[in-house]
Computed example of a mutant assay.
Amino acid sequence: MNIVVNEELKAYIDPMTPEEYEALERSILTEGCRDALVLWGDVLVDGHNRYGICQKHGLPFNTVQNTRFKSIEDVHLWMIDQHLGRRSISDFLRGVLALRKKDIVDRQRGRLATVSESAAEASDDPPFDVDTPADGTTEATAGTVQIPPPAPLYSREAIARAARLSSSQVGMIEKIQKQAAPELVAAVKSGVISINTAAAVATLPAEEQVSAANAGKDELKQAAKRVRESKKKPRTESAEAAASEGDAELDAVQALQQRVAELTAENESLRRQVAELQAQLGH
């Protein structure tokens, strides 16, 4: 059968490391290709590495059709869930996949909100033609097994749980994706620095990010420390200003109280003088 390798789909998930690829190749050479390749029509969706290894060594493999796919977004969602569930990946990459899923789900929900119910209903027909042999059976290498679609996620918290991350981690990764220079992204992606450190450095101007990333791990940590300290300083100054204002108000109150006491004393003195004058006039 003709299998089409879509380069965009192949690159959608970060590739295996050389060590992971070598381990997979050894496994296939020893035990064969145990897991079927997943297809969408003729397009290869899952199993690019297995397919390449089997082609390289002339080994047989099985395929399975996912007839639930209605669009490339369905394919992307399925790929994300598969990799989140079965590959040992870093927290950063896990968050990147979770955010991709969030974007896709948001787009789908947005479209559903603007179209009628009838237009939103998907056709039961697969988006491709499946040839059926004369005997009415399908080829063993192209079975039509319906794989359950990924569960919908309607909040950032739900997406974070699916990725086994906290909501704050997802938020930091989102900041890195939006603000970080490529050099900084490469550093956190390779594990040189933590997500927390990268998120702090990502708030700096791009040229400062690049300079810190090129200088290495220690400079990146120092840059993150400077960012955190700069955020603490305004809060300290605000507290000092508030304390100063409080002292000024206290001084004003005390001054008023002292003035009231002085006026009260003067009033009492005047009363005594009046009483003495009245007593003298009475004689």
Rank of each mutant, 00 (worst) to 15 (best):
283 H>T: 12
266 E>S: 10
190 S>M: 04
126 P>V: 14
17 T>Q: 07
18 P>K: 11
181 A>D: 13
119 A>H: 08
55 Q>A: 07
94 R>I: 04
259 R>M: 05
54 C>G: 05
126 P>M: 08
127 P>K: 04
203 T>F: 00
52 G>M: 02
149 P>V: 10
164 R>F: 12
92 F>G: 00
98 A>E: 00
170 V>P: 00
220 L>Q: 05
208 E>C: 04
270 L>F: 05
178 K>G: 02
256 L>S: 15
8 E>W: 08
177 Q>T: 04
181 A>Y: 00
4 V>E: 08
201 V>T: 00
180 A>W: 01
29 L>G: 04
239 A>C: 03
183 E>M: 05
182 P>W: 03
126 P>C: 02
283 H>L: 11
20 E>N: 10
268 E>M: 14
148 P>H: 06
52 G>P: 02
161 R>T: 08
76 H>Y: 13
129 D>L: 09
167 S>F: 00
214 N>T: 10
166 S>Y: 03
124 D>M: 13
277 L>C: 06
40 W>H: 09
202 A>K: 03
93 L>K: 05
155 S>W: 02
44 L>M: 09
238 S>L: 14
237 E>F: 09
283 H>M: 10
131 D>C: 00
76 H>F: 12
209 Q>N: 13
175 K>E: 11
185 V>A: 07
83 H>M: 03
56 K>F: 03
109 R>A: 15
275 A>P: 01
182 P>D: 14
48 H>R: 05
189 K>L: 12
65 Q>I: 07
158 A>L: 10
203 T>Q: 05
170 V>A: 06
162 A>L: 06
263 L>C: 08
100 R>T: 01
65 Q>N: 06
234 P>T: 10
236 T>M: 11
248 A>M: 14
172 M>H: 05
